[in-house]
Design a protein around this nucleic acid. Structure first.
Length: 792
DNA sequence: ACCAGGCTTCTTTTT
DNA sequence: GAAGCCTGGT
């Protein structure tokens, strides 16, 4: 049988596809097309809120279940009219039945371990795994899902020698890297005022993003400044290697180099990964693009998802070229645009579109939606940042009471962390439960970094930088001069500083401090014995004790006790790590510490308003969003105003900010703002002018005439008056119903802080300020209007 | 070697 | 405004 009836063939294929279309009818046409396109490079341009994670999850599940079942035109030879008609009639069956029929179409389905899914945060990776396991069950755990860095670390740990590293190598974070660069500058006798360490670090980091080695960089260095940076880069890289350490950029760059230089490793990886998906593609850099090309080199099943309009990490080396030029590099790539937004109201989307339209360097995309028009965006001008914060809290409480919203429905997104201070203070006073992300991060606290540094030296005595950090912390009377002498000897002998210290009495230059230096090495050796015999958590406790760190903190006085708590928290972290990992080792723990950050494990379920920068809000959504500080000079920032491409990045950031909101958006700006120690008088953001007036509602104070006599100054306590006036609050907590007045000594209960005792009461305008000692959270000052206290 | 007080510096920062 | 870094004195 050579010629099958063409009609039957076509009907068979059509029926098959109709069945898949129905199974995936919860997706729109474009989304479905992306799910079914599995055998070629694929670029998905996914606008904000267009369901890109849904597409990623469904596509991976589809690949594992059905392989290339949709696109292929295979028709079994024995198909006859009867069978085709059966398929055509099957369409009326429920989805579950269709799915079992669909398994017969499966064509070369992919085992889960051959799928690699790369995201930008650990949080996104976990979310991805969770959603996948809901669709395909426990198979999901075999999928490689992680960040660029975690995936590369897995490869580097496996092919350590090929990557030119020694086992147990450590990761330097940005802070470590900056310190090392400072050391290098000193060593090269370059004045820090001429070349700022920070700038050098950025430049080196950008070079690594572009896969430039120190010699590449030197070859291209045209002026004196670049030539000097090239020298620093070279020395910096040498120091890293000597310490058997990598920085964040090295993790990617070294993986790329390893894959390029070792065909056998490359072949293994290329054969292993049949399907590769990359999320947030607009924020990848050249090295990462190169990496994905290398890994997908054999099957070329590379799918990238991104939105050029949401690229906001250019300053970190992300290049929009990756997304703009993807189909140039891979000419057979299919490009699919997802332009239907499922997240926001028409009004919010209209504003977002209006803003982003002003950018020139875009791929061109216009989001639309079927959602309701929604409320207009509320724009409010306040007098200063404290009033701005109070206004936000008022609006939140108002909405909680009137619309029965949860506190976790609200997000306050700001441009710079410096704005967070005043916001936090007002929130803390108000008693409204809030959570702030991205302030001082746990692993960036000094005491935590110190203990980690001890662990790093225990794990890798070659780690000179960490050794320098802790050699005299707590004080051991080992001064800078001695440390530098040790470093010089180590350099001359070609060994580590630790090695020199162990044989300190052999070197004349440091003989005076020999006993102190050796004592330190005994301490590390002792900790190594503990590390070999016991769990990580036990090692940390021993470290705190034996190094004298605990004693040191206790001697610093009561104000520093928090440090001890933090250090204890690190022990808890380690216990948690031991419980959740099958093979808990010290070096794996250290890797996790270096690669995981606070935002990854913040508790989403807590009912609290969330405060964070717009950058960290990327990928998140909230029913109600507040955008304080929409002012020229702050957003867009003062330094972007002159440079068009910086301005475009700011505009993309504004676009990201606006599109985080599902239902309601509040934009505020103030007359005078105290920031960085200076008061500035900013005009409303130019981005605000770009939003058509039809989408906006100016929130003007509606003042009945009798409220304020001419010439009378407005009362200081603007919040509670405005608050009481504009909301139905009076019925709930307002004075008319006489919310109970408490006195010092009363025992009370607060909705989020629990039980406490009133310490003092102070009149504040129309309101009362209570100072309350809570049993669990300590003493706080709360305004009576917000505190919602109950007598107990 | 250590400490205290004065100086600068300050975008954003998934890793 | 606050943190971190350098400098100079002990």
């Amino acid at each position: 049988m050579i010629t099958q009836d063409v009609d039957i063939r076509n009907r068979y294929i059509k029926a098959k596809r109709a069945i898949f279309d129905k199974i995936y009818d919860h997706l729109n046409d474009r989304q479905r097309e992306a799910v079914f396109t599995v055998n070629s490079p694929l670029l998905v341009l996914a606008g904000a809120g267009s369901g890109k994670t849904t597409v990623l999850v469904n596509r991976i599940a589809f690949i594992i279940k059905y392989g290339n079942a949709y696109m292929n035109e295979y028709v079994p030879e024995d198909v006859d009219l009867d069978e085709v008609e059966k398929l055509e009639h099957a369409l009326i069956l429920p989805k579950e039945d269709l799915e079992s029929i669909a398994f017969d179409f499966a064509s070369n389905p992919c085992p889960p371990w051959a799928v690699l899914s790369i995201t930008f945060t650990n949080k996104a990776a976990n979310e991805m795994k969770e959603r996948l396991s809901r669709v395909i069950g426990e198979q999901a755990s075999d999928i490689w899902a992680g960040t660029f860095h975690s995936v590369c670390m897995r490869l580097l740990r496996k092919y350590t020698a090929e990557a030119g590293l020694a086992p147990g190598f450590t990761i330097y974070d940005t802070d470590d890297a900056k310190k090392l660069i400072t050391n290098c500058l000193k060593e090269l006798n370059i004045d820090e005022k001429v070349l700022a360490p920070r700038a050098v670090m950025n430049q080196i980091s950008r070079a690594k993003d572009q896969l430039q080695t120190p010699s590449d960089f030197a070859a291209e260095a045209s002026d004196l400044r670049l030539k000097q940076i090239a020298k620093v880069y070279e020395l910096y890289q040498r120091r890293l290697t000597e310490s058997n350490a990598v920085d964040f950029d090295d993790i990617i760059m070294r993986t790329v180099q390893m894959l390029e230089n070792h065909p056998e490793v490359r072949d293994y990886c290329q054969t292993r990964f049949r399907y590769i998906c990359v999320d947030e593609y607009q924020d990848t850099n050249k090295a990462q693009f190169r990496l994905t090309l290398l890994l997908s080199g054999k099957y070329r099943n590379l799918m990238v998802v991104g939105d050029d309009d949401q690229s906001i990490y250019k300053f970190r080396g992300a290049t929009i070229e990756n997304i703009l030029g993807f189909d140039k590099e891979l000419p057979d790539a299919k490009v699919i645009k997802l332009e239907q937004n499922y997240r926001s109201t028409k009004c919010i989307l209209g504003a977002a579109n209006a803003i982003i339209r002003n950018n020139i360097g875009r791929r061109g995309k216009e989001l639309w939606c079927d959602n309701p028009d929604g409320d207009r965006i509320v724009v409010k001008k306040l007098d200063n940042q404290n009033e701005e914060a109070r206004y936000i809290i008022n609006k939140i409480m108002d909405s909680v009471i009137r619309e029965k919203r949860k506190l976790s429905d609200f997000a306050v997104l700001y441009r710079v962390n410096a704005q967070s201070n005043s916001l936090e203070q007002v929130f803390a006073k108000s008693g409204v439960a809030y959570r702030m992300l991205g302030g001082l991060r746990f692993f960036e606290r000094k005491e935590i970094k110190d203990i980690i540094a001890y662990l790093c030296v225990v794990s890798n005595t070659g780690d000179n930088l960490r050794l320098r950090r802790i050699i005299n912390e707590p004080k051991r009377k080992i001064g800078e001069a001695t440390v530098n002498a040790v470093a010089q000897i180590a350099e001359a002998e070609g060994c580590s500083m630790f090695d020199v210290m162990e044989n300190a009495d052999k070197y004349l230059a440091i003989s005076k401090s020999a006993s102190k230096l050796k004592e330190f090495t005994y301490l590390i050796r002792e900790l190594q014995r503990i590390a070999a015999a016991d769990k990580v958590s036990k090692l940390i406790e021993s470290t705190i004790e034996l190094t004298g760190y605990r004693k040191m903190i206790l001697l610093m006085g009561d104000t520093e006790l928090e440090r001890l708590e933090n250090v204890q928290e690190l022990v808890s972290n380690a216990v948690e790590y031991e419980n959740s990992h099958e093979e808990p080792t010290l070096s794996n723990f250290l890797e996790e510490v270096a690669l995981v950050n606070d935002i990854d494990n913040y508790d989403e379920n807590a009912d609290a308003v969330v405060l964070m920068t717009i950058h960290s809000a990327k990928g998140l959504e909230f029913p109600v969003v507040f955008l304080p500080g929409f002012e020229n000079g702050l957003f867009p920032g003062i330094q972007s105003q002159m440079q068009p491409d910086e301005m475009e990045e700011e505009r993309r950031l504004a676009y990201v900010a606006v599109t985080r909101a599902r239902e309601k958006l509040f934009i505020t700006h103030v007359r005078e703002r105290l920031i960085y120690g200076h008061t500035s008088y900013n005009h409303p953001s130019k981005f605000l002018e770009e939003i058509p007036e039809e989408h906006l509602e100016r929130d003007m104070p509606k003042k009945p005439a009798e409220e304020r006599k001419p010439g009378e100054r407005p009362k200081r306590n603007v919040i509670s008056r405005e608050f009481l006036k504009q909301s139905d609050l009076t019925a709930n907590v307002g004075r008319t119903k006489g919310f109970e007045r408490f006195n010092a000594g009363d025992a009370v209960e607060h909705m989020s802080f629990g039980r406490g005792e009133i310490l003092s009461v102070k009149e504040m305008g129309a309101d009362l300020l209570y100072e309350i000692a809570f049993e669990s959270v300590g003493t706080k000052k709360l305004m009576a209007t917000y505190a919602k206290l109950k007598r107990v």
